Simulated scan of single mutants.
Amino acid sequence: MNERQHPTTAQDSPVTVIGLGPMGRAMARVLLAAGHPVTVWNRTPGRADELVAAGAVRAATPGGAVAASGLVLLSLTDHRAMYEVLDGATGALAGRTLANLGSDTPERSREAAAWAAGHGADFLTGGVMVPAPMVGTPAAHVYYSGDPGVMDRHRPVLARLGVPKYLGEDPGLAQLMYQAQLAVFLSTLSALMHATAMLGGAGVRAAEALPELLASADAIGAILRAGERTPGAALDAGEHPGHLSTVTMMGATADHIVDTSAALGLDLALPRAVQGHYRHAIDHGHGGDNWTRIIDGIRAPHRPVGPRGAGPDRSGGPGQPCR
């Protein structure tokens, strides 16, 4: 069936799920529970057994899986895996919508959208922002980007997986947001493990350390939202008022963390990276600015250092990144 020509209601829309890792299986289970006819395919057929027992149809080939539904959810490692799986099924793609919910770069997402269009298929990029057990729960949300009309057409079905958050027409946007969110997530996890290792050097057990450290992590959002103007608004305006946490003050703390970690014999990659952000800002004459000034060095890490205090601030005008 060509969904473009024969739309169905959200309740009876057939959906195909290709890729049955933990996330793919979770999505298929949620869709089955909601009453959708679900077709599944995986390179290792046995991963579909539980889903088939619950009512899913196991396709013999990727082409058969694509042909079974107007909406095809891809839960694969990356776009290379998508090409490997679908290269032999391109004849079935015309009139279908591929919603790629795996991970890759924004640029490769744009390339994948062009590849799909070349075979007559619509393409949505998605980023699932919860672990597999939370798919379909009220806490779940998924970022999407791509053609707005295609998004509107499939929104009722996609909402089964989690609240759809549509970012725009650029197919790379959802992956950019996904990667940005994971940059925060992964960096925070590494910071928690580093801090736990620091405390472990003094004999503090992880079971005792982590609750204290998690309280600090939980408080970050409240700290950043405090005040009359949020850091985001100030960053967009190019403002870094240094009346509270200055680059110099935070940089001194970063130095102390490096020294303490070194004395404990810990890996220094993470604390040195953080230290480098503050040193870059100080070297460019911004020690008295708010700590948010470190974004300049992140945006343009190789900008040469000139004489301190010489000439105007070259970090960019309001809302403008360093160049």
Rank of each mutant, 00 (worst) to 15 (best):
D104E: 03
A94N: 10
F123D: 05
A60S: 08
A113C: 06
Y144I: 06
A54H: 06
A54E: 10
L86C: 02
G64P: 04
T61V: 05
A81Q: 02
G64T: 04
T39S: 09
S109C: 12
G35N: 06
R108L: 10
E107V: 11
T105A: 06
P138Q: 13
G118V: 15
G88C: 07
P131E: 09
A117C: 05
G88H: 08
T97L: 00
P131L: 00
H119F: 12
E84T: 15
L51H: 05
V142D: 02
G35V: 14
L51I: 09
V135A: 04
G118L: 13
T137Q: 14
A54S: 06
S109T: 14
G127N: 09
A28Q: 01
M82V: 15
G120E: 08
D49G: 03
A116R: 05
S103W: 12
V40M: 00
T39C: 08
L74Y: 01
T39D: 01
L51Q: 02
L32V: 13
V66S: 00
A33D: 08
F123R: 08
A114G: 11
V130Y: 04
A48G: 08
G35D: 06
L74T: 08
A68Y: 00
R29F: 09
G136V: 14
S145M: 03
L124R: 04
M134H: 14
S103Y: 07
G136F: 06
A92P: 00
A54N: 10
L86I: 05
S145I: 07
G102I: 15
G46Q: 12
T105C: 02
L74A: 01
T137I: 10
N42S: 06
H36M: 07
A34H: 10
W41H: 03
